[in-house]
Amino acid sequence: MGQDATLPIHGEMTMLYRTLYSRNVFAELDRLARDMQQALDLTPAIRGRGPGAFPALNVGTTPRSVEVYGFAPGIDPATLDVQIEKGVLTVAGERRAEAPPSDGKATTHARERFDGRFRRVVNLPDDINPEAVQARYRDGLLHISVPRREPAKPHRVTIQ
């Protein structure tokens, strides 16, 4: 890198800074992943999104409804909090990690699964009917179906 004379000086400084002061290779990789994500996704939503968010969400629309799928395994459905307020759907709750055996002799080899509190937010279109929302939880998949007030059918305008 230092041999490239056309490299802007601040770029070189950044490289130097990172080489000298990055103690934690994992934090560095994490930052690299975020940098790349920002470089690829120029207009991220203000509430954030992307890999790592829990639960992962898929949203689809039909003329009659908005379908939200939340991939939220291992949660007691009674503790899931699903709300619609001012056209914003919120899914919130908590997933607790199972306590390791108490004898203190257990070794954790991998801990990749999410634990803690979560909250995810979806903006809904204007024509939804929040009174008739249905939510189901099966096999760790939360399916929320929000009906729309009337099918957005195109209607022909007669010219007089």
Binding site: P55, A56, F71, A72, P73, G74, A97, E98, P100, P101, D103, K105, A106, T107, T108, H109, A110, R111, E112, R113, F114, D139, G140, L141
Partner: peptide, 16 residues
Amino acid sequence: DVIEDAGGITLRADLP
């Protein structure tokens, strides 16, 4: 999550 104790290994996987 993979946790090992004296008797064996417990693996938990998220498959929503």
